[in-house]
Design a binder for these strands. Structure first.
Lengths: 138, 138
DNA sequence: ATATTATATGCCAATTAGTGCATATTAGCA
DNA sequence: TGCTAATATGCACTAATTGGCATATAATAT
């Protein structure tokens, strides 16, 4: 009953969902739920729900790989293309930048481009990264 | 408590408000409330309320001229500029196009670039336009 | 002063949306 | 088969949003 642009913008009218869009857009990666959870420091059930809303609005989709679910932007669509290139410039500021930093750290844990761990809290993340660096030097 | 981009996109997450933004953006004019009312065919109190929300979000402002209130886009801001140029491309489709047609008709009633009548319904509008054309030919 | 016109706003009811928690689902693994 | 890990979802609660109506405000005209 309402037009597409309205329902898409409704889906984007929430800080958490904008933060999610931000990590997808600036990373350019397909991300699994646990990676988004760690980037945003929000509970898993919230991220899952918000991802479902974005999926419903037609801006992202999922591809399952075992228990992992890789979510990615639907870029083969003219309206979405406009939207994403707008958001890429528009979403600037502390919150958005912090999320990217966290995501970049978290992505260091990937192996061969794939997510291999669930959520890890802040300290655990740092420890794991140190271990990884150590091992790669050996 | 929430960041600016979020509150702006919240303000845009409503079909009526997107339609309002559309008439501002594609017409490039400062419009008074009655002109927006006639373009969208919605009750005055709705338009007033929605304009207040957009004003609150920092995307439009008002300049009063007697009882008339001319609303206009706040374009001297980098984030707003991005937003408006995005919306200009993004807001396409029947609803949006129809509103523009209605607005164009309605703007024919202006005199020296100013609004000189309140709301007029569809038939009244057509009559008035015919009269105007007739008078201008004499 | 009073009436009229353009616009704003307060209040209510109805709907919708977000959070938190617990639990369901599904896949891999011992 | 049973366990654990990754993700999804149902439910209850609260908060926010919207439309409709009536009325307020404020400027102009009579």
């Amino acid at each position: 009953m309402i037009n597409r642009q309205t329902s898409v913008l409704k889906a984007l009218s929430d800080e958490t969902r904008l933060r999610i869009m931000n990590v997808f857009i600036t990373s350019g990666e397909a991300l699994c739920v646990c990676e988004v959870v760690d980037a945003l420091h929000l509970p898993q059930y919230q991220i899952s729900k918000h991802l479902a809303i974005l999926k419903n609005a037609g801006v992202i989709d999922v591809e399952k790989d075992g228990t992992w679910g890789y979510h990615y932007l639907i870029t083969d669509d003219p309206l979405n293309k406009m939207l994403f290139s707008f958001l890429k410039k528009y979403l600037v500021g502390e919150v958005f930048d912090d999320d990217i930093k966290q995501l970049d750290l978290r992505l260091l844990l990937r192996e061969e481009g794939r997510c291999v761990v669930g959520f890890v809290d802040e300290k655990e993340l740092k420890t794991k990264i140190k271990d990884k660096v150590k091992n790669s030097q050996v």
